[in-house]
Design a protein around this nucleic acid. Structure first.
Lengths: 225, 225, 225, 225
DNA sequence: TATGAATGAGGCTTCATTCAT
DNA sequence: AATGAATGAAGCCTCATTCAT
């Protein structure tokens, strides 16, 4: 009995170590990706940074791409959490809270957010890890569902423009995506007041799609304002 | 005399052929990039598609990256043209025309626009062709200057929010950038009504930053609406 | 404890194997270089001859040139050993021993010696591996220093002509260099008595620079003999 | 008749231009080889420097190697001339004149002499242009013959050691070869008094092989001195 | 006749992945 | 179980030579 306990403990202990090491790999990879050009990060370098053998990496991840998708998923889960909180606050009355939370989460560490986008580009093009990618899409769609209800209510209450709910959500996503890109585009990123600019954009994100701004097929819409 | 003319003609003819072939290389490259993962397009494949020898590519471009930057510059010049026309119309009275032109140009062929962004990412990370990249940035900054005057006037006339002119421009850039990304992000691009969505976003782009939507440091700003 | 020992043993064993393989690469390269034109030896061929994968070569040497410099250094170290012994014998009384040892070492395998010279030419022109080349020069200069003392003594004893010590050393180097070249110059190397010729030259090397043969600025010097 | 003359003139004129251009190619090649690493000189660069089209080079030389062998032959012919004069003077009484002329010719422009050696290395290894190489060897052997008579006389007169005549010639060649190498070997060529060193070596070349310095198979020979 | 654009074989190097220890 | 040496496919680029104009 005691033996069983002891061995069970040992197994649990090992599992914990194993998971910790897995996290070390992920962390090492993210660190390196943030430091240097993505193309120049090799599995060797990741192993070195994680202070384990190259072969060991392959005990945790079947391919290099599995590391990438894992990084992306971790990040997306983080975004989801923030968004969930925002939705909750929005349902409690603060109509812009969801969008705000979303923007803040994505702009909190724009460099990382951009990295994720780039990893995603590489990954989707490569074609493998299709099942993992599907997971990512499911996660995002679940966010969408959570939002849809909220947005529909806001449309009903006349706060938001009456277009399909996901128009609002995706416009928001697009602006956030672009804002992040903006932060790191070499053409623009020598501005000194990035912070205020991001605030400006966040505000646009929060108010865009509000009623009174979009009047399809109505040539007089502009006069209405 | 006749001889001179004849030989001059021949030389001109040759130059034309040479340039035509250069364009064939570019076209072949773009085609392939649009068809398949960027990483998987090799100089060999480009040459094959352009129906020329691999070595010939290097008569036209010093390195593979020079092909990429050339594609990007060609595209950016195209955008610039559209924008210039839009600015002109805006100055003739249609205040939203510049933003509209810009969005339309970038969303006309979103797949290509997205390709350009991705090529740029790759290129900047690679580090070489720095001088060509500088050209690109100059082109973009010249666009910015052209816009600044217009935006300033619109701010003075009270149409746009009173923030630094480039806030408006960059917000616009960011939304366009994100919209393009949206079109091809695998998570979202199975929608059927992408066109209307893009119209929705374009409209946001045209109206965003208009007065009455952004009230920094004013907690009551939302009530004002 | 036993485990530790066992694993330490295994590690040592591995290191030995690794070094053995490195030597195999070197040997294969030298073999090939001696068999065929230097230009035609590729990394692929070396790997093939060493019976390893092409990529493995790069685990041992950063570039192809590193293989070359390594061959050169190995050879130069060998020469240094012979020379050191010769200097020792010279200091024990046999005044010509140093020069003799040097000539014998370089003429022992003239084909190899010539290969080394050619590799060096290629290497210096290529420009990289500058630091390794510096090592080579240091090695040679240390030989020079070892000789300088000896030569100075011989000058003091009136055995050698009173010119800067390195005149003697470098004249010796030059003759040896030329003798090697001679062995393999296609114009001359169809002689049948190369061995006696080399003996003749070695003797010149041993006696050249002896007093009574060089009288700079002294028009009567020839009469003195 | 006049027509014939005129056309003959034109043909002669053309031939002259053709030969002049051929020389331009040779000169351009030598210039470039002296300026930069041999490997880095391409046919393109040579044509550019000679201010003609690349294709035109191939009207004059069947392959790149033919340019090399031509440079070598031109140089060797030059050496031959100097040597011939030296032999003449030697036969008029100045016994060391031949060796002296030879050394002076080869050390007059050591950089060029070394280039020739290097080109020869490249060429012989490459295997083609065998017939041209044969020409080179013939030229050298004819020099040898011219010398042999002289040397035999000097041996008979007791000036030179009684060994096969070509021993003397080849020892001389070897020392000259090595001296040139010495001038440009990176390990040694930071000396400041190269000129005196070369004078020292030339003197060795002139006196080496003189009677009284070489006593094969005679253990007492050293005491004789 | 002179040209130079076109060619493509072939070189060096990188790196994800495997597997014996 | 962890390791890291070994692998070889695949990429980019060079350049001697050809040939149509």
């Amino acid at each position: 009995m005691q033996n069983n306990n002891a061995s069970a403990d040992r197994i649990r202990e090992k599992k914990k170590l194993f998971l910790a090491r897995e996290q070390r790999i992920i962390d090492a990879a993210v660190e390196l990706f943030l430091e240097e050009s993505i193309d120049r990060i090799t599995v060797s370098k990741i192993a070195l940074r994680a202070a384990i053998g190259k072969g060991t990496v392959y005990k945790h991840f079947l391919t290099k791409n599995e590391i990438l998708i894992r990084i992306i998923l971790d990040y997306e889960r983080n975004i989801t959490q923030s968004l969930t909180k925002g939705i909750k606050r929005a349902e409690e009355g603060d109509s812009g809270a969801a969008a705000k939370s979303y923007f803040e989460a994505r702009l909190e560490n724009p460099k990382l957010d951009r990295l994720i986008q780039q990893l995603e580009d590489r990954l989707l093009e490569s074609g493998d890890v299709a099942d993992q990618v599907e997971k990512l899409h499911k996660l995002r769609r679940s966010n969408e569902n959570a939002l849809s209800g909220l947005i529909t209510k806001l449309i009903d209450r006349g706060v938001l423009e009456d277009v399909p709910a996901y128009f609002h959500y995706l416009a928001c996503w697009a602006l956030a995506q672009g804002a992040v890109e903006l932060c790191f585009n070499k053409t623009w990123n020598d501005r000194t007041d990035t912070e205020q600019l991001m605030e400006f954009i966040t505000n646009i994100g929060v108010t865009m799609g509000n009623r009174g701004q979009y009047h399809p097929d109505d040539p007089k819409s502009k006069k209405d304002k």
